[in-house]
Amino acid sequence: MRLSVKSATLLTLLAFVVVAPLFFPSSFYYRVGALIFVNGLAVTGMVILTGWAGQISLGHAGFAGIGAYACALAPEHLGLHPALAVLLGAVISAVLAWLVGRPILRLKGYYLGVASLGFGILVSMVLNNERDLTRGPDGIDVADLGLRGLLKDAGLDLSNGQFWYFFCGFSLMLGAWFALNIFNSPTGRALRALHGSEIAARTVGIDVPRLKLQAFVISAVYASVAGSLLALQNKFITPDVAGFMHSVEMVTMAVLGGVSSVIGAIFGAAVLTLLPQVLTVFAEYEQLVLGLIMVLVMIFLREGVVPSFLRKFRGNEA
């Protein structure tokens, strides 16, 4: 029997998380790996929203910002444990996504893109300007999650880099599992159906606005948790996490790797996180080479790297 997409994706991720460290040239790569997983988590949300439901967002970094700053602010001001701060951030992001999504998801295509962009800019402005609370553009310290200490007491002594590598790796697997559950469920089918033909989706009884909103909220939670994990592992965060460039990065990673496939989008996140590290050998041409790669992929592998290759090698499935 052939492996389902779900098992194949999860096994690939597991193998990568476990095996990759054997090839790390230095312990610095634990950090790069953790960054890949965090970005992978954010783009998994984009797969649900953009790849399946067909809705674009250029403002999802706003939710990452909310998740990140929840971890910076809630422990200090509300006395919440950082783990609960992650949850609080996710809830705030979900509520905001619901409030913002209702009016803007009526828009289509680039109108929706611009409206969501506006939301991202708004969050980023608040984080930059509310200095009394957020300390502004210089950034703010984030409390320790405390889990590494607990593991150490339990006899598992990991370096900081190792801990976050595995923690983010398993968080990503969990996130991918949720997403792949949705893919083959009635909800996932309805999402993909409204992408295929809104009019046909409505006539089979799909409440299109409600479903788009659900996808928007779910993807916002992914971005929020990714932002939280970023803040917690760096123990420091700046408003850049909510910046426009970060939103664009999320979309680019997903589209480059394959926005309709979870493993594809994660691959895109890995490539675009790794490339800048690798391309430093090109010194000042780094950005140029990166840009060129992106243009070429879009011209020759329009569905994204992973789905295009899968299609070539075994017929027509992703």
Partner: peptide, 24 residues
Amino acid sequence: QIFQTMSVLENTLAGYHLQESGPV
């Protein structure tokens, strides 16, 4: 008005949306 990238089975299943959908 076909859901092009979905399988034939999934297209038919979409018609079951009201019967098969439940809490997200």
